[in-house]
Design a protein around this nucleic acid. Structure first.
Lengths: 375, 375
DNA sequence: CAAGCTTAGTATATATGTTAGGTATATACA
DNA sequence: TGTATATACCTAACATATATACTAAGCTTG
């Protein structure tokens, strides 16, 4: 981003900043060859086990490698092999345990397949995600896994990544063409089941704090909510539909809006874990008793959820499995064997805890069949 | 780790796995030069703003770059320049918000200085950390920031990283020689102040769940605790000193041990956030009332701490600042200007919330001057 | 006024570290 | 003699940046 109009005498010599201090050059395969009294190609063959090398020679080389502390230069290697054995991953928020759990899954599969992960945190902003994708391209990663930012505005991923294969995890891209595939859950069904669970408890006025309008998963979850509400022969009250930005403060803000409504809802459904926490906080602050006075239903479980009082009932996504499957899908594509193929939809689970109960003022007691309800 | 004794015919041709599927070659600077009708050196000069290029030529080149979607190959670039503008970072646990907060700080400073982060999660195991350090070396990162694993057994970091500069954040290395510098807090003082705070409330039997014996920071915090206890003219009861492994389950386990002691402590001090959570859970499960029956004091705050009931009083480390300072320290070293120099000790803060109160059975009411107590 | 210098722009050769593919040589075996 | 095996070495890429050389014009200067 230097000024383009730069007309001053263009300094030829590198600026002082350009050259690093530690002049101690790295040890190369050439150094090893010299010390071991062998040719570079023999050393290469010995290291990569790729050609005949006599036992004696191998020993000399191994000794030289150890003595010099030689590490092959992956830049040169990647350049030569046109292969980096590296996967780029962008997640929307590294401090959200949901994504770190997905990352764990990816990492486990990837390292078993001898790939390394390059991790980027887009802070849920397309502008920052773009920087990472560009970086991945320049680094010539073998593949990319995107969990797109909420405000994803990517028109054509090929412009950004060239021929590099891409798969999507958790979220869908802005434009639904997830060419390389997608691994996630059916958000519509998950939200539908969750909402129906609330209705089965007798709730008729259910508030929802949904994600941003630009995010497809948010739209799906909202759609699931709508269908469930309408399915219970209740009109969708626009006053009960609120929008957050998937972050804690927005959940807090919108929950307060809902709870201070003249005719406030008897239950609140938050469509991600951060907003659920915000809503939880709002309920505490307003001294509304949960679940007696208001029920709270969340999305995306976290490992310390059992510590909260009341424990929050949540829709759980199989985060680790999503990561695992996404990494596998991508690596299969990279290595040419498309055994798994296409999109994969994993199933969610409703973790019933203590934050949902029948509403205090009970309407006509209608029984609704409950959705799939896990432990 | 292939078998060294491999005697079979060494396959010359790359295994099917070796060659990637997508044959669509990447676009190179050569392609740009051809399309823009210029020489490669001119294109290079135009892109890097490093030599005279006429306005007309520049325009043609820019257009060609955009049209072809050209991205400079960072492998070749790094190889040529002997510089990658990349920092390697190993943290013990990516799902611990304390470390992701440190990472945020590092990332902010690094990207402002045009460096990219390579992030590794060692799961607090030296064996895994070693793999990442090796990887960083092969990738020729310009510098490394370590938060060493608890069982750090690194004898000589130079063997692993060659000439690559290293700085330490948060934790000290196994052997105290943090040649490149260290950024963190004074753990002894922090634990001393925290323990003294408990004693100022009247506690005499204070249990501690410390980190593993191999971890220097754990040793320091334990030492701070010991000094404070002895400073209050109370002998250190070995039964009250427990060891965890910095993870939640160990905090849970050790807290139960402490709470089921015949003469149980009136307060528990946990020396990291995960173990604090475990202890919190144990207290809930045993239905011991906090802070009425037992006080709980934690270490390393987390953003959702206000949601727990009671809210836990904690020693807070300036995580973001630690990350920021570590990145700055490292980059200054890389770029040859050592303005900051040496180790940096940042100050901790005791966040007083609701989990500490005077013990139920009050001993002689002695007043102890309280340490530095924050908001 | 020719030689030399400066300015502006472009082209060429080389080096970075590594590996595949080809070449060379020696031995064993049919 | 020819063929297969075993061992070692040489060279050409891979994509980039830069030192050097080159062209062409404008200017100074003895």
């Amino acid at each position: 981003m230097r000024p383009a109009k730069r007309r001053e005498p263009p300094s030829r010599q590198r600026s002082a900043k350009g050259r690093a201090k530690h002049s101690g050059k790295h040890v190369t395969i050439r150094d090893v060859a010299r010390v071991a009294n062998a040719s570079v190609s023999t050393v290469s063959a010995a290291i990569n086990n790729t050609d005949y090398v006599s036992a004696a020679m191998r020993l000399r080389i191994e000794r030289a490698v150890r003595r010099l502390g030689y590490r092959p230069n992956d830049l040169a290697r990647g350049l030569r092999l046109q292969r980096t054995h590296t996967l780029g991953v962008v997640v929307p928020d590294l401090s959200n345990s949901f994504y770190t759990e997905i990352l764990q899954g990816m990492k486990d599969y990837a390292s078993a397949a001898h790939y390394t992960l390059l991790i980027g945190d887009s802070r849920d902003r397309w502008a920052e995600e773009q920087v990472y994708l560009d970086n991945f391209h320049r680094r010539r990663v073998d593949g990319v896994i995107r969990i797109p930012a909420a405000d994803d505005q990517c028109r054509n991923i090929r412009e950004l990544l060239g021929e590099i294969p891409v798969v999507y995890a958790d979220r869908f891209p802005h434009t639904r063409d997830a060419a390389g595939g997608h691994v996630g859950v059916d958000n519509t069904v998950a939200a539908f089941d969750a909402t129906r669970y609330l209705m089965s408890l007798g709730h008729r006025r259910i508030g929802i704090v949904a994600g941003p309008e630009t995010a497809p998963t948010a739209a799906d979850r909202l759609e699931g909510y709508r269908r469930a509400v309408r399915g219970g022969h209740v009109p969708v009250d626009p006053a009960l539909v609120r929008r957050g930005d998937n972050r804690m403060v927005s959940g807090h803000r919108e929950a307060i809006e809902l709870l201070t409504l003249p005719d406030r809802p008897t239950a609140i459904f938050c469509t991600n874990n951060m907003m659920t926490l915000g809503a939880f906080q709002a309920i505490q602050e307003l001294k509304v008793v949960c679940p007696d006075e208001v029920s709270l239903l969340g999305f995306d479980d976290f490992y310390w959820a059992p510590l909260l009082r009341p424990q929050i009932t949540m829709v759980r996504q199989p985060a680790r499995e999503i990561g695992l499957a996404a990494a596998r899908l991508l690596i299969e594509q990279i290595e040419g064997r498309n055994t798994v193929g296409g999109d994969q939809t994993l199933s969610t689970q409703l973790i019933v805890r203590q934050s949902c109960a029948p509403p205090a003022t009970r309407p006509e007691p209608s029984i609704v069949r409950s959705g799939k309800v896990g432990a």
